[in-house]
Design a protein around this nucleic acid. Sequence first.
DNA 1: CGTTGAACCTGTTTGC
DNA 2: TGCAAACAGGTTCAAC
Length: 295
Amino acid sequence: MPELPEVETVARGLRQTIPGRRIVAVRLGKTDFIDDPVALEQHLPGRRIDSVERFGKFMLLRLSNGAPGDSATDKGNEPAALLVHLGMTGHLAPQVAAEPHEKHTHVWLELDDGRELRYTDPRRFGRIAYLAGEALRSELQRFGAEPLEIDAAEFATCIRSRHTRIKALLLDQSVLRGVGNIYADESLWRARIHPARLGSSLSAKQAEELRHALQEILRHAIAMRGSSITNFLDAAGEPGEYQRRHRVYGREGQPCYRCRTPIRRIIVAGRSSHFCPSCQPKTRPKKARRAQRVR
DNA sequence: CGTTGAACCTGTTTGC
DNA sequence: TGCAAACAGGTTCAAC
């Protein structure tokens, strides 16, 4: 399931071989996950892919200027990009055009070097959109901070000001862009925070511990090229290795790596959440007792 | 403002 | 063994 580290891994792979190539033709299969399929056919042919960026869980293929007067709504000289979200089972990878395509391939971007950039997605939970100018700007504005860039003050504010479960906040793309179920659970375990705690109930120290845990885990996962849970493969068809480092995700009933207590799985914010009931207490540890213990 | 549940989709796993 | 139900989960939307 591609989250930030997996998308970053794919983007890095594409960056090796795609920028500078021109799209010469577009072929579409099923299009129910594409915002405006006609826009792809209209605006992509002739455009060069200038760069590949990651934005949260999206990949952004920045496109060269189109022909002036391309259409009434697209002047051709505004910044334009193809947004690709991999959903649960999406793959985006270049293939030699003569090679047979995988089942569930829905988009073929024919390149000027004999290859095709193909999008394959059995479940079609992904999303593809061509956006330019103001439409692109406003779409990107909907999303929250980049988890690897957010500073301590901003993180503390957007977590501690909210009367919502911390698990829901981590998954909310308008708060942080790019965190999904695996890395939310892993960070909460590392910071010893129960997933059902309210954001407003975290101490300043806990918020900072959580931010630190999240960033460390994301960096480590990127270095290991992501987690291959079901069938995640990078742009070169290679699996990631981070699934071996999971401490709670997918480990229900198995002993906590810190204290041996069996890991539990509960539903929080409608999502399956893995945690250690001993290391991640539901309520803040009380300290009011100390006075009574004085003899 | 916040929370929950359903819907989307199909391959894989589980249970009878 | 075989088949159906449950499950996986990112995102959006309706309902409360």
